[in-house]
Design a protein around this nucleic acid. Structure first.
Lengths: 106, 106
DNA sequence: CAATTATGTAATTATATGCTTATATAATTG
DNA sequence: CAATTATATAAGCATATAATTACATAATTG
C-alpha cells in the first residue's frame, strides 16, 4: 500500500494519453525509442521526455543494447499499477503494424 | 473497458492529492462541503472547485439537503475506479476526528 | 425580510506541463 | 576517424492547473 502522495504521482504519470499509450504498448513487449516514435507518430524528444518521467516514477526501465535503448515495464512488484494496466485497451494491433513495417530505425 | 482518453481523464482527476484524499474520505461515507473543508484545512472555494471537477468526471454526485450539499462517490458502475480506490490508504481516522468535533458547519 | 450560513463561481496569479527547436552524447559504420 | 544513426537534454513557449480573493446565490433563522 503506497501513500496518497506516491499514488497521486503515479496517477499523474498515467494521466497523459501519450504515456498511457506507451505503457499499453510496453505491456505487449519491450520496445526501443524509435519503435515508439514510429508507432505514435510523435517527435523523438517528446517521446524521450515521457520515457524519462516514467523511468523516474519507476514505471519503466531502460537498457541500452548497441545503438538502441529499449524500455520495458517495471511494474511486477507494483500490483496496484499492474491491476490498472490490465484495464487498458489492448494495443496489439499497433504492435502488429510495427512488425509489418520495414524497420525504420537503423 | 473505457478508451485511453477516458482513462487518462480519470487519472488526471486522481492525480491531485487533495482530490484523492477527498475520494478516500467519501469512501467512508458521504460528506458535506464544510466537513471536507474542516478535515482538509483548505479554503472552501478550493474544495468546491475540486468537487466540481470530480462531479463533471462522474466520480462524485451532489445532493442538496437544507443548507448543506452532500457529496458521495458514484463509482458503483465503475469497477476500474472502484478497484483503484480499494488501494487507497484508509482515512477512517480523519472521519473519527470529524465525528468528535463540535460541528463546525451550522 | 434582514442577517447569517453554506456553497458556487469568476477573475487573477503563480506554477506545472508538454511540445518544439536546437544541440549534445553515444554507439555504429564505412 | 569522419559520417551517420539513435537517443538524451536544455531552452523557450503556449497551455493547463490549483490556489486565492472577491463576489454571487441559495437556504435558514430570528
Amino acid at each position: 500500500m503506497d501513500t496518497l502522495d506516491t499514488m497521486a504521482e503515479t496517477f499523474k504519470l498515467l494521466s497523459d494519453k501519450t504515456r498511457l499509450t506507451i505503457l499499453s504498448l510496453l505491456k505487449e513487449r519491450e520496445l526501443c525509442v524509435c519503435n515508439i516514435v514510429d508507432m505514435l507518430q510523435m517527435s523523438q524528444p517528446s517521446i524521450s521526455q515521457h520515457l524519462r518521467k516514467m523511468k523516474a516514477g519507476g514505471l519503466v526501465s531502460e537498457s541500452r543494447r548497441g545503438k538502441w535503448t529499449y524500455y520495458a515495464l517495471t511494474i511486477d512488484d507494483k500490483p496496484f499499477v499492474n491491476e490498472i494496466l490490465s484495464h487498458i485497451p489492448s494495443q496489439s494491433s499497433k504492435i502488429e503494424w510495427l512488425d509489418n513495417q520495414e524497420s525504420v530505425c537503423d
